[in-house]
Every structure is written in structure tokens, then in C-alpha cells.
Design a binder for these strands. Structure first.
Length: 218
DNA sequence: TAGGCCATCTGGTCCT
DNA sequence: AGGACCAGATGGCCTA
């Protein structure tokens, strides 16, 4: 977890550096198993390893609902689940267990699809030569990216308010007023402007220069 | 070879 | 009862 340890001071930058730099993964998993990187919302990664052979890309869930996924531990153990393998007593019929397994597999695939969608909008190098973000890295990077965006947005708002106020008063604001000196505020935490279909927010008494619906208004 | 990452299976818990 | 969600266990693949 070296990458996680490096997240201390500037997590976003740390991760961006780790994953933004193209580094070859050679003949390894990447090329063979679909480390192609997010290619948009409809991106479906090439099946990873076992998943390629197993359930992930199988079109018929009915099929894998009655057999252990090929390549899965259960499959390797002999092509059939051994309910008592872990010393547990089977409490449900085999068909039910397989159905539950298939459902769980599907759920995890949906989760992975969502993660792929997230990867596709996170600004890091999306290239076949760049290793795909791990799950944990994706989440941490996304979180910090959101925080950065919120901070940038807030700074822009302050700047707009500063400029608007300066125009209205015709005089420069006191030098003590630092429009960038306050802590970040999360997006959409302000008051929605009346009549703005985008429900954008801005400082009281100001329109948002960042919102086209505000700026387009006569 | 160790460590990281992942997919899958499984049983438990909670909710509808 | 059935489904969703979760966490632990297991084993495979890849990289340093």
C-alpha cells in the first residue's frame, strides 16, 4: 500500500503522480487483461483474468447461476461447490446458493462498472499504457478531486463577488479583504438564485458569473 | 518471493 | 421469502 501511504500531504497530487505518469506494464496483466483505462461511460473493461473466463462477461446469468464460475476457487476445487469445505453445514439448497452467488457476482460487476465510470471522469492519464487505477485509489482520488474542485469553485465565486462589488461601489475594497483567504465551501451549499433553472448558487446579492443562465438573463 | 490487487464464494444481517 | 449489502476467506495473477 505504498500508494496509500503517500497520500498524506497532498493525496490528489500523490495519486495523480502515481497514476498520471505513463509507466509500462509490459507483457503483464494490463495488455492481457484489459488495463485499457476508462474510455467513457460505456466502457466495459476487458475481463480481468479469471473474470474473463468466469462470470463477468457471460451473457447468460442463468448459466452461471447453476455452475461455479470457471476459474473460480469453487470451480478449481473440482467444478462444484463443496458446501462443507469450510466445516459449515449447507443451510440452503444448492440451486439457491448458486443463484445467490450469481446475484452477488452481478452486484460486484455493477459496482466495478460504476468504478470504471468514475475512473473515466477522473483526470488522470487515460491511456492504454497507463495502469488502471485501483479501486481504493479511484475512490481516494475522486474524493480529493471533488474537494479540489469545490475549493476552486469557491475561489471563483469570491473573485466574482469581489469584482461585482468593486464595480458597484466604484472603489477598491479594503486591502484587508482577502477574497481567497477563507476556507473552502462545498458546492451547492449556498442559496439557490431565484429563477435560475440551474439552481446555481452565489453570494448574497450577486449573480453567478459562472452560470450561463444567470449571465444570459437580460 | 512477498506484497498488492482482484474475483469469487459464502454466511450473516437487514430490509421490503 | 427473497434480495441487497457486507465482510471474511480463498486463490490467482502481476509487479518490484
Amino acid at each position: 500500500m505504498a500508494e496509500l501511504k503517500s497520500l498524506g500531504s497532498d493525496p490528489y497530487l500523490a495519486l495523480a503522480q502515481s497514476y498520471g505518469q505513463p509507466f509500462a506494464y509490459g507483457s503483464g496483466r494490463g495488455a492481457a487483461e484489459g488495463y485499457a483505462g476508462g474510455a467513457g461511460g460505456a466502457f466495459h473493461p476487458a475481463p480481468l483474468g479469471k473474470a474473463a473466463e468466469s462470470s463477468g462477461e457471460q451473457s447468460g446469468d442463468e448459466e452461471d447461476a447453476f455452475e461455479p464460475a470457471p476459474g473460480s476457487p469453487a470451480f478449481e476445487r473440482g467444478g462444484a461447490l463443496k458446501p462443507g469445505a469450510l466445516g459449515r453445514k449447507p443451510k440452503e439448497p444448492r440451486s439457491l446458493r448458486l443463484s445467490i452467488n450469481a446475484r452477488e457476482r452481478r452486484r460486484m460487476h455493477d459496482l466495478n462498472d460504476a468504478l470504471d465510470g468514475l475512473r473515466s471522469v477522473i483526470p488522470y492519464a487515460h491511456s492504454p499504457s497507463v495502469r488502471k487505477l485501483s479501486k481504493i485509489a479511484t475512490l481516494l482520488l475522486a474524493k480529493n478531486y471533488i474537494l479540489m474542485q469545490a475549493q476552486a469553485l469557491e475561489e471563483m465565486r469570491r473573485l466574482v463577488a469581489y469584482l461585482n462589488q468593486g464595480q458597484a461601489l466604484g472603489a477598491p475594497l479594503p486591502a484587508t479583504l482577502n477574497p481567497f483567504g477563507q476556507s473552502a465551501v462545498y458546492p451547492f451549499s449556498g442559496t439557490a438564485l431565484p429563477g435560475c433553472p440551474e439552481k446555481c448558487t452565489a453570494f448574497p446579492g450577486t449573480t453567478s458569473a459562472l452560470c450561463k443562465h444567470c449571465t444570459d438573463k437580460p
